[in-house]
Computed example of a mutant assay.
Amino acid sequence: MTNSRIPDHPSWHEPLTDYLAWLRAAGRPRSTIYQRSYQLRRFAHETRVEPFEATLDLLVAYLGSHGWANATQHAARSTLRGFYDWAHVTGRSESNPAARLPKIRQPAGKPRPASDDALAAGLVEADERVKLMLRLAAGAGLRASEVARVHTRDVEPDLDGYSLRVLGKGGRVRVVPLTRALALALRSLPGGFVFPGQDAGHLSGAYVSKLMSRALPDGVTAHMLRHRFASRAYVGSGRDIRAVQELLGHSSVATTQVYTAVPRGALRAGVEAA
Results as ranks from 00 to 15, higher is better:
residue 201 G to I: 02
residue 30 R to H: 09
residue 151 H to W: 04
residue 182 L to A: 06
residue 85 D to C: 10
residue 147 V to G: 00
residue 215 A to Q: 04
residue 21 A to W: 04
residue 122 G to K: 01
residue 175 V to N: 03
residue 166 V to Q: 07
residue 252 S to V: 03
residue 167 L to M: 14
residue 68 W to G: 05
residue 131 K to V: 03
residue 116 D to Q: 09
residue 58 L to Q: 13
residue 140 A to T: 05
residue 82 G to S: 14
residue 24 R to F: 11
residue 182 L to E: 01
residue 78 S to N: 06
residue 197 G to M: 09
residue 120 A to G: 09
residue 196 P to Y: 08
residue 114 A to I: 08
residue 84 Y to S: 06
residue 186 L to P: 00
residue 140 A to E: 03
residue 240 D to T: 12
residue 28 R to Q: 09
residue 201 G to T: 06
residue 61 A to M: 00
residue 148 A to N: 02
residue 48 R to F: 11
residue 182 L to C: 12
residue 142 L to V: 12
residue 35 Q to G: 10
residue 174 R to D: 11
residue 75 A to S: 15
residue 72 T to H: 11
residue 165 R to D: 01
residue 1 M to D: 15
residue 82 G to P: 09
residue 59 L to H: 03
residue 158 D to S: 12
residue 130 V to W: 03
residue 40 L to W: 00
residue 57 D to F: 12
residue 3 N to K: 13
residue 114 A to K: 03
residue 57 D to T: 15
residue 137 A to I: 00
residue 160 D to L: 04
residue 147 V to R: 04
residue 232 R to F: 05
residue 100 R to K: 14
residue 157 P to V: 10
residue 56 L to A: 15
residue 260 T to I: 02
residue 63 L to K: 03
residue 105 R to V: 11
residue 121 A to D: 06
residue 261 A to L: 10
residue 191 G to E: 13
residue 263 P to L: 01
residue 233 A to H: 04
residue 159 L to G: 10
residue 223 H to P: 04
residue 20 L to V: 14
residue 20 L to K: 10
residue 18 D to L: 15
residue 126 A to P: 04
residue 50 E to T: 13
residue 248 L to M: 08
residue 16 L to I: 10
residue 66 H to E: 06
residue 249 G to K: 02
residue 108 A to H: 12
residue 111 P to C: 11
residue 93 S to Q: 10
residue 139 G to D: 07
residue 112 R to M: 05
residue 19 Y to G: 09
residue 226 R to F: 08
residue 236 G to C: 05
residue 266 A to F: 00
residue 118 A to N: 01
residue 83 F to R: 05
residue 116 D to E: 11
